[in-house]
Structures are given as structure tokens and as C-alpha cells.
Design a protein around this nucleic acid. Sequence first.
DNA 1: TGTATGTGAGACAAGTATGTCTCATAAAAT
DNA 2: ATTTTATGAGACATACTTGTCTCACATACA
Lengths: 189, 189
Amino acid sequence: MLLRDKRAVKSRSALIEAGLAELPVNPTASLTEIAEIAGIGRATLYRHFASREALVEEILAVSFDDLVNALMPMENENLRGKKAMLRAVELMMPLANKLRFLSTFWVEGERVLSKDPRYAMMENETILAIEQAKQDGDIRNDMPTRWVMNTYDMLIFTAWDMNARGEASIEEVTRLLTTTFFEGVSPKS
Amino acid sequence: MLLRDKRAVKSRSALIEAGLAELPVNPTASLTEIAEIAGIGRATLYRHFASREALVEEILAVSFDDLVNALMPMENENLRGKKAMLRAVELMMPLANKLRFLSTFWVEGERVLSKDPRYAMMENETILAIEQAKQDGDIRNDMPTRWVMNTYDMLIFTAWDMNARGEASIEEVTRLLTTTFFEGVSPKS
DNA sequence: TGTATGTGAGACAAGTATGTCTCATAAAAT
DNA sequence: ATTTTATGAGACATACTTGTCTCACATACA
């Protein structure tokens, strides 16, 4: 299956899309269900992916590629600390459904993606940004970087979820997210 | 199985404890595994719980009972707004290990628990507290109550999770949670 | 047009989880 | 002490999932 053929390309992306949408909602979905959602025969699924594991790993790889690509513009912007974190949120919001897959399959994800040098780079840059923000006086020094990172990730998901339910626009949830993250829910004093 | 017998009580609680501990870590664990962890025969598991679903629902019910009981002291305290929210966090945090189950099985949980009148009551009281806090000037008026509630819930789950992983004590995550929620990660100006 | 190739449908085997049932044993209840 | 009841071990049927394979058909490609 060398993806020279239009049909193969279409089948493959339909399967990846189906897994991306279904597996975070129902992680134990059978490959029969995935194939049905994709509108593709089950046998064809196995022609593209040797096993269930292979499918998950492929979706992880594709999602991670999208994430890296979304953040590419930052390479030329030389932002640091708080400004970098704000910019990253802005760039990441539109693909939060892919981030959701990454977080759902985090155990597999870490095993697979940790072989990718970009993975260590990204994590490192997040930590650097948080610690830079601490030095700049934008993030409290008495908060563990790990907590700040978890909160940051969690707020991105909450914002995406609210947007996905149609309760607020991308711009609105981005504003809510960044305000809540840096200032909290209290009014400015 | 009317739980008049010591043995039945012991078996039942051993099974619930095993599910409570194992299922959040490995949600697809078989009932054979659960029974083995509990140190109970698989047949006995089926004597107590008609199906896998019944076991999960029972654990959800027990967990929710624990949550409601933990919040009982507030009935006599007449706290409102921000103070009520802080107190609720304080009372809920020690249940971290038990209530992680609720967040893992949130989909089933909502379906099962929404039949319980106490569920609607709890949600309603949270909304009331948030709106009271807005009136008191403790929460920004330009933030939708729904966003504030989602953020509040997600921060509690994040804190539970971090504590359950042994990355911070109950006191530590309580402090981090309340500070982040009301003040954000920025230092006080 | 003719050839190569991807696809759908379905048969098939192997493995595993579910749920039921029986029987001898051990423990609790009275 | 006697009766009642829960348990463990294991057999058993059923259903589902996985992964492989074949064959007729349709579509892309050259």
C-alpha cells in the first residue's frame, strides 16, 4: 500500500479521521466500529494498519505532526515567557481535538513520541517558557512548574470543549482561558 | 445476598475497593483481574454484581455517597459565594484517591447519577455560589458562569490527579488550586 | 483500452471476556 | 450443635474481537 493511488489515500485519511473522532470518546471501540464510522471495509483497515496498535500510533504521529506544524510560526517570532505561552495558546486552540487524542492516549503517546526529537524539544520549550515567565514576574515562583503545565493543558481542553459545544467562539474562549490562567477568576484589584 | 453475613460484607467491599483502585488506572481490566486483585473468586463477583456495568454503577454510587457525605458539614455552616467554594474544595480534596473514579467514568457517571436528586442539587448550589461570588465582587462579571464552573471542576480533577500520582500533598494541591482559581498564576500586584 | 491495484463482503480460526451453573467446603448465624 | 449461607474452583456455553485470507468487482493509472 504505497499511497500512489487516490483510493488508498482517501481510505487511509477516512480511517484516521474516524479514529481521531471516535477513540477519545470511546477508547475501547472495536476496529469494526472504527471502519464503519469511516465508511470503509474492515479488511481494508487491516490492509492499511497491521493492528489496532499500529492505527493508534499512526494517529498519534499525525496529530503530533499537526501540532508541530501549528506551532511552526513561532520559530521566527522569538517570543519568550508569558508572550510565548499566549501565542502558543492562540495557535493551538484550533486543533484542540487532536490534542484531546494525544491526552487520551498519553501512555501510548509518550512511548511512541518520545523517540521523536521534536517531542523533547517541545516539552523543554514549555518548561523554559514557564520558568522564563517566573523570572519575568509573570508566574509565581511558589508554583511548581508541573502544576502550571497541568493547569495550562487542562484549561486548553476546557476551552476547546466549551467551544465545541457551541457555547463560545474561539476568540471568546481564548480570552477566557488566558485571563483565567494568568489573572484567575477574580476581578482586577 | 442481603449482606447480613460478615463474609458477604467483606467480599463486597473488597470488590468495590479493587475496582476503585484498578479501573481508573486500567479501565478495560477484565472482571477476572478485578476479582483477583480483590482476592475473591470470580463467581462470587457475579453473585454480588449482575454484570460489569452493575459493578461500575455501584462504585459510582458509593463514590458519590462519599462525596455528598464529605460536603455534609456545610449544611450547618451557611457559607455563601467564595467562602462556600473554598470550603467545598477543602472538604473534597481528601477524597482524591476515591473520587478519581468519578472523573474516569464521567460519561457513565453522568448518566447514572443524574437520576439522583442530590446531583442536581449539588450542581445548583455550585451555580448559586458562583453567582453570589460575582455579586460580592469575588468573581468577574464578564465570565460566563458556565466557564467558571467548568474551570472549577477541571481544576479539582487536575488537583486530585496530581495528588493521586504522589506529586503533591493534599494541602499543597488545595493551596495551588484555590490560588490558581481566584488569582491565576500571576504574582499579586 | 488494457493492466494493475485497491476495495467490499464475508468466511474462518484463535483468543478472550461474559455470564451461568454445580458441588464440595468453610464459615456464620441460631 | 445444627442449620443456613457464602465461598472457591472450575466446567460450560455464548458472544465478541482480532487478524488472516479469498474472490469478485470497481476504479485509478499508463
